[in-house]
Design a binder for these strands. Structure first.
Lengths: 201, 201
DNA sequence: CCAAAAGTGTTGCGTATACACCCATGG
DNA sequence: CCATGGGTGTATACGCAACACTTTTGG
């Protein structure tokens, strides 16, 4: 009885004001399940091998398990998604990061990808996991742009700031972002870089 | 390379004003994955074989996939949960239905069960899937008791009714529930017995 | 001085919550 | 006539959405 179990990973990052997905050769990175290593660990190791570096504090979530029941070969795919801050992806082949809104509808994993995007949207609306798309310090506008990129809609600046600050997830770092041809922005950090439930929107 | 893939099912039902789980022999019903049958189909067939009847219109959801990475044998469990109306469970061994709040903390699948309960709570708060815990026709009080049993808290009768009716999910059947030593209650049906997103609470 | 982005309050509206009494029936 | 559960309205608090101008910096 031949059953092959794979782990597939959907890697998300936000840069250039767009949500991107890592799709080298139009495929999701994957790995074959073997003995002695859990699904979660395998997912992390698939990701670290394509990233070429250790990944910490990035939010990893199991998305869904799909099956392809053929006559002589049962295939099971356990799919994960992971959020990476843009700073970490310098090492990746840049051309393999595809904007989420321009992933070809023809690739076989398109269904998985759409579902992953949907789940990501939900997740950022009721948890703090966006922290794992951002560097340690960031401005409120940068944070707002991350939300806008994921949710696919504009947010009101004043309402956004009031809401985010009222949640008490952030603390001011004291520093300012200077060097731009504009008024310097105050910088913030997440108090905790651990997942927790929060109603953001 | 020996990998065994199982499907496990958490069966939920609400009766006697309590959420119950089907645990014959303190175990979740399960089945072994083989060729030619998808995970979802296998989950349904496990359920139908313990139920001894065909199950329609019951809400089935994939919960999570767990792995047990031993040295010489990799085990993968794909867990589902299903909602059954109390009327359907007459055929089951009644004593195997355990109240959710009195499942022993010592059984090996306790973690899975707690997680399933948590996911069920979430689900009923933002979808209409409770329909699959109820018979075709029911009174508003019966519906309210279902919610109270799952959420584990009392709800205000007037607010509950206003909210539920405002969602437009129900239509009055015209009939009344008589025979009780009390004022007859109007009976309702769900307009659609299909899952859809609705913010209930 | 001009362009660019940061920063800041108020108002209206709709939804959630809290709360208590009368009604219809069966026994 | 009494016990049981069905059925109903209002007032308040709160959160969300809409909306425009001033400030600080770099060039």
């Amino acid at each position: 009885m031949a059953i092959s179990v794979r782990v597939k990973t959907v890697l998300f990052s936000v840069f250039n004001n767009k949500l991107h997905i890592y799709l080298p050769g139009q495929r999701l990175p994957q790995g074959l399940v073997a003995h002695g290593i859990s699904l979660n660990k395998l997912a992390m190791s698939v990701i670290e091998s394509v990233a070429g570096q250790a990944i910490n504090e990035s939010y990893l979530e199991q998305l869904y398990t799909f099956s392809h029941p053929f006559e002589q070969m049962m295939e099971v795919d356990v799919v994960y998604y992971l959020l990476l801050p843009a700073e970490k992806i310098s090492e990746f082949y840049q051309e393999s990061w595809i904007a989420a809104d321009s992933v070809s509808r023809n690739i076989s994993e398109y269904g998985i990808i759409s579902y992953a995007i949907q789940r990501l949207r939900w997740k950022v609306e009721y948890t703090n996991v966006v922290y794992s798309l951002l560097p340690r310090e960031f401005t409120l506008s940068e944070l707002q742009r991350i939300y806008e990129s994921i949710l696919g809609r504009k947010l009101d600046k004043r309402n956004f700031r009031r809401k985010i600050l009222s949640l008490g997830l952030l603390r001011s770092s004291g520093r300012k972002r200077t060097g731009l041809k504009a008024r310097p922005a105050r910088m913030f950090r997440f108090r905790e870089r651990k997942p927790s439930m929060v109603q953001v929107f």
